[in-house]
Amino acid sequence: MLNIIRYTFYDLLRSRWSIFYMLFFMLTSTALLFLSNDLSSAIISLMNILLILAPLVGTIFGVIFYYNSSDFTELLLAHPLKRSTIFLGQLYGLCISLSLSLVLGLGIPFLFYGLLYSDAIFDFLILLVDGVVLTFIFVGLAYIIALKNDNKVKGFGYALLMWLIFAILYDGMLLVIMMQFQDYPLDTFSLVSTVLNPIDLSRILILLKLDISALLGYTGALYQKFFGTVVGISISFTLLAIWSLLPSGLVLRIATSKDF
């Protein structure tokens, strides 16, 4: 599998899109660092961008890459390679290449700005972890959709819809439900639904660092336990780990029984 990962990675490394993606993050973070007065403000603004963009780019790249490489995938299928090797190899090759663009694009400007001598370094690391994990999750989800849809237009549409749901609609629905049922106890509902969406989950991990003072303002015992102790951070990391494995597991299942 390492072979496939390696070559997919080389292939993408030279594509202008991964360079473009890296440059985008470099420009954005440089601009944010210059415009805002400190690292923490820049990290907060960057979080907003990253939580939307990493899933979106992961989704789009995932779908495009799948369809673009489908002929070559068929060629590989005719070789004595296991399907798991081929698909996970391509998937991880793509994820690693995107993650590298992301990490370098964000990391270099922040390093120059003096990240290492700042106490915001831990916040920044969580941001990077979030970005990488979201990339893995959404490339995986996009791959699932593409595997299920041989029609490119349909596949692309569904993938974008999937992103839209996770990134925006889900939270909108959640907020509407919470406001609609505000007279009922909502602690469990809201916490559980939040951690089920990987984008929200990633956001919570950053909030646990940046907005803990506000999160502890609410009286609910469950919230207090979740945000006030290590429980929250452990549960979030565990779920995020599960989330980052889930899509590739599904990709594997679908790919091994699919006709090409």
Binding site: Y10, D11, S15, L75
Partner: peptide
Amino acid sequence: AEYRNNIGYLPQIARFPENLTARELLKM
């Protein structure tokens, strides 16, 4: 998958990863 060691296949459409060189592809 192993039995395919015995098969040489020439697919209909010759499309490869765009950014690799021919040498790298053959090596892969």
